[in-house]
Design a protein around this nucleic acid. Sequence first.
DNA 1: GCCAACGTTGGC
DNA 2: GCCAACGTTGGC
Length: 138
Amino acid sequence: MSSYWLVKSEPSAWSWDQMVAAKTTEWSGVRNPGALINMKQMKKGDRAFFYHSNEGKCVVGIVEIAKTFYADPKDEKSGLVDMRAVEKLPSEVTLAAIKQDPALKDMVLVKNSRLSVQPVTAAEWARVCKLGGLKSGN
DNA sequence: GCCAACGTTGGC
DNA sequence: GCCAACGTTGGC
């Protein structure tokens, strides 16, 4: 069974466009223990929302886990997963829209906005896809 | 740019 | 192991 996730990035540091341009991205620099636990649970083929924090504050696209967790040779307290862009949402889903939606009020994004790698439930996944203009979860 | 919430660090 | 001080994140 695959799981759903949400990863955050500041567009000034790493944007969706860069994510698309780079075929595969090594997701590095995560130090938060909770976020690292989530990363370790990612499986190849799992999908994640790509969220722009600070600027934009919206879900912009979907990425796929290309390689599961492995140690970061440069930082023993951290680790990496590989991801690649899958598809852009026809319309961005803003944080304001998520907060406004009763079906999404329990999203980690709302409750613990500082966590940079978060789990997303299947129901939340489907809902955000719908808001973003995708018919299905793919 | 401000500041609240959350994490981390380090002295005890 | 506690907790105060400090640093960082991210929404506003």
